[in-house]
């Protein structure tokens, strides 16, 4: 560890509290386990997935990534009853390619099964406009659905938080919640290669437009390493019911594939690495050039791994429940 890295660890510790102090002298990388399911029940019908099927896939995956024997125990190992949990969606492309409502309903039900009250769940994205376009209401069953822009002052902190290459004001929702669940949609991205979990958190800062240079590397990694994100992100659940394999991140019907999958991990780098491979596999089947060939491979995943966020080596990632999908 050099002097710069040590200084950054100290800053991290200040943000993250006592749990992070342990990290100063030895990083605690999450287990590189990615668990998922594919099923015809997870294919979108009317731009949505069946909530019961999503819940089943979710519960199965959670048991794998937490190592607990029951789903309630699995949820409880990640979230306390008295915590406020933010669920970050991906709503920019509109209802045809946004996080599906059925999956969000399943996540909310899972949290509530662990004792988290509906009032302590905030389902959110950047703007009310985006939530509306993705079919999310203002409130449902006591759960808050919020755009950052619905908070005073357009919903970002006044203070610019500087960490490595990132200098941004964070959504007040991120500041308010104790824990985050990130629920991206798996998409090709014409600049950053893919848009999976880590890229989705660009929606947490006021100036994402500033960090698309160099294919998003190392900006995406640095944002996710930022103590404000790293200290709160507990789980990433990727909605792969419909995957945009080309010409993303906007929805393009010609290149959207109903893949019928959900996969999740506590390791954001491993999850994105698997997502990248899924997209490459699907592109290869359709004779599309690889992201490497187009010089837009998501190098930020490796940068994230090198920052201690997780694992980017596919061979070192334990993939459960998605057998054969990368062939």
């Amino acid at each position: 560890m050099n002097r710069r890295q040590f200084s950054e660890k100290i800053v991290e510790a200040a943000f993250m509290g006592t749990a992070a102090v342990r990290n100063i002298f030895g990083s605690e990388k999450p287990d590189p386990v990615v668990a998922g399911s594919r099923s015809s029940k997870l294919v979108r019908v009317n731009d949505d997935v069946d909530a019961a099927a999503a819940r089943e896939a979710l519960d199965r995956g959670l048991i794998v990534v937490t190592g607990k024997s029951t789903t309630v125990a699995a949820w409880k190992s990640l979230f306390r009853e008295d915590e406020t949990v933010g669920i970050k969606l991906s709503c920019v492309p509109g209802i045809r390619l946004s996080t599906s409502r059925g999956l969000v309903a399943a996540i909310c039900a899972g949290l509530q099964s662990a004792g988290v009250k509906a009032q302590r769940i905030v389902v959110w994205d950047r703007t009310r406009r985006e939530l509306d376009r993705a079919g999310f209401p203002v409130n449902r069953d006591g759960i808050r659905y919020r755009g950052t822009d619905e908070y005073p002052g357009w919903g970002y902190s006044d203070q610019v938080e500087v960490f490595r290459t990132i200098g941004s004001c964070f959504s007040l929702i991120v500041k308010e919640v104790d824990a985050l669940i990130n629920v991206p949609v798996l998409k090709d991205h014409d600049i950053t290669g893919i848009s999976g979990g880590m890229k989705n958190l660009y929606g947490a800062i006021h100036n994402p437009n500033k960090y698309h240079g160099n294919n998003g590397d190392p900006y995406i990694a640095d944002l996710n390493t930022h103590p404000i994100i790293r200290g709160k992100l507990r789980l990433t659940i990727c909605d792969a019911s419909r995957v945009q394999i080309h010409h993303g991140p906007a929805f393009s019907g010609r290149w959207a594939r109903d893949w019928g999958g959900v996969f999740l991990s506590r390791d954001p780098a491993a999850l994105d690495r698997v997502g990248w491979e899924i997209i490459e596999t699907l592109r290869s089947r359709e004779k599309l050039p690889s992201l490497r060939d187009e010089d837009r491979q998501p190098r930020y995943i490796q940068s994230a791994a090198e920052s201690g966020l997780g694992t980017a080596d596919l061979a070192a990632i334990r993939l459960v429940g998605l057998k054969g999908v990368l062939e």
């Binding site: 920019v92 492309p93 014409d190 500033k210 698309h212 240079g213 993303g248 991140p249």
Partner: peptide, 8 residues
């Protein structure tokens, strides 16, 4: 892309 903004 649609509904996105430039660097500015």
């Amino acid at each position: 892309a649609d509904l996105e903004r430039g660097s500015c």
